[in-house]
Amino acid sequence: MTLFKSLLIAAALTAFVPAPAIAQPNRAQAQKAAPIAADAVISVNGLVCDFCAQAIEKSFRRRAEVNDIRVDLTAKVVSVDFKPNTTLDDATLRRIVTNAGYTVVSIRRPTSSGNGGAS
């Protein structure tokens, strides 16, 4: 394959990248890192890449109790918001994170009165 074709491949790949995400990654990051009304904040070891975030997000979103989830790679925490009148206990949260391949350091319940707290 010629160098010209290689250049075309590289150019095609970069063409799929949204320009704002290239030019202003900090703004995109800030938007994504915006806090949610977390019912549980899980400190996790091993969160180093977007793949890690994907694995944890998809594992949590399979649970009917989960309303929203946010992974913060910088703070190394997973924030989980439960649907009204639902919750997941610490053991379940720990199992979801562990099965996704990561290690739970601690679990906090900032709004423990909101959804009934840990069960």
Partner: peptide, 10 residues
């Protein structure tokens, strides 16, 4: 070249 947050372009 830069450290990206979850959901951003890495």
């Amino acid at each position: 070249p830069y450290v990206a947050e979850a959901g951003a372009l890495h």
